Amino acid sequence: MTDTTDTTDEQGHGSAPAVPESAVWLKGQLLEIAAALHPDRRPAVVREWTDPVRLRDPAPVGHRFFFLLCVGGDDGPSSPGFGDALNAFAAAGWTVRRQSPGHPGESWATARQEDFEVRIYEGDGRGIVTFTGWTPVVYTERHLPQPPFTLSTAGGVLCDDCHGWGVCLDCEGRAYSGGSGGYGRCLCAANNAGPGRCVECGGSGLLTADEASWRRRQYGLPDAGRGDAVRQTPAEGGHDSSTSAFIDVSKRSCGCGEFRCFWRNILSVDGEHLLSRFVGTCQGCAAERSYTFALPSRGLAAPAVPPSPPLPPSPGPGSP
């Protein structure tokens, strides 16, 4: 089993906490389900990391633990795929829900069990199948509600002011700050953000598009395009499978220093090679990222043999 463990809590900063029992259980579940899909191949644990959860102070008040596994898809149509993965999670007692694919040819779903969640993904062109699983937030001191999302689960870049909570951290989401008299009005009610909401993000917990664009410019990165309009990068070599290429890509960081990214995989044929393309949006600055790898032709699935035309009926006895 390939295991590239990363215990950093954010952008390379160390001091991540000890792994709790909840994370040990989740990792065991993911490995067990992945191994059932490929009895003859051990699953690749691509990366392990944590998301910090903050309130007002820079020091985190808790962490959420993540595991990313790549479980196959390089062996062509005979290899277990997306549907098999969903069945395996359902058989293990998880509640599975298919999601609407955002791009043609790709498939994804979520599996939940109590406060644990897994994102199941298969790329276009019989691409790789990945599991991204996360625990509920484990708090170090006082118990707090689970945040709407953390850095790795958000569909964008977390707001710097509320750290993704979507609420004003001065009043913790209430309409009153509880000032000297106990009922002092909190200023978070200004700017039409509504009582208790974060003024900077309007309660969404995410940076606005303009703020994300400004952040990219600060790092000297281009603005994001629309849809799948990500530049086609020159094909790299050195890998014999999409799984190997994906492990490589998952170790690379964006120009802003963030490694977290929702990676998509697209497979296509180019002459005698299979091109495996990875595209995604950085969760640190929303910049578009793209890598392409040329794989050996032996990774190509054999084309289906067309059925033979039916034979004409045999003439019966006495026919001319």
Rank of each mutant, 00 (worst) to 15 (best):
S242T: 10
G237M: 06
L295C: 06
A190R: 13
S290R: 06
A193L: 13
T95C: 12
V45C: 06
S180D: 09
G238C: 09
H163E: 00
T135G: 02
A212I: 10
P309E: 11
V46L: 01
G125D: 14
E48S: 13
N191E: 14
C159V: 07
A189V: 01
Y176G: 09
T95Q: 14
R231K: 14
V269C: 11
L37Y: 00
F116W: 05
D75E: 15
G81I: 02
L311R: 15
L55A: 07
A90K: 04
A212V: 11
T150W: 03
P136E: 00
E172I: 00
H239T: 11
G220L: 01
G123Q: 08
R142N: 13
H38R: 15
A229I: 02
C159D: 06
P315N: 06
S152F: 03
L267D: 00
V138I: 11
F262V: 11
P320M: 07
P303N: 14
W25S: 05
V138M: 01
C201A: 11
L30P: 04
A224Q: 14
P296S: 09
L221G: 04
P39R: 10
R252Q: 15
F259I: 06
R298L: 15
P312G: 09
R142P: 12
A85D: 10
F82G: 01
G182T: 02
A59N: 12
L144N: 01
C201Y: 07
G225T: 08
I33K: 02
S290P: 15
G205P: 06
V19R: 13
V230G: 00
A34Y: 04
E48M: 13
P60F: 09
R54D: 12
E141C: 10
T292I: 02
D170E: 13
D3A: 11
S308A: 15
T233D: 01
F116P: 01
G14F: 15
P17N: 00
V45S: 03
R226F: 03
E117H: 02
S78E: 09
